[in-house]
Amino acid sequence: MFPLRKRCTACAGSEVIRRLLPSRGTLWTYTVQRFAPPSPPYRGSAETFTPFGVGYVELDDVVRVESRLIGDPETFRIGMVLELVPLLDVDGEPIYAFAPVHEETSK
């Protein structure tokens, strides 16, 4: 399960083991957030807002994680390879995102 919770969402058991997720994956589905999300909870102003991608990234055969996507939304395709990148919100708090792996580094 993601994110980490005190109890398992399937069986409600309290023995939860931390596991490091892969930092690379493939895009399973996506959309583009084209208007400023209501704030709060979103941290950011409507005036300076620029559209961003959102998608579910399939991390090996482990889990599909919802994430902000970095890059030109016009280039997003289901199945494209992405990697984890750090992202800061407007207050400098860490959130995360996935970005396309450049051709020269992908295998």
Binding site: Q33, P37, R43, D89, E93, I95
Partner: peptide, 9 residues
């Protein structure tokens, strides 16, 4: 963070 990141839409 789910809300601050702009995913609560």
């Amino acid at each position: 963070w789910y809300g601050t990141a702009g995913l609560m839409v």
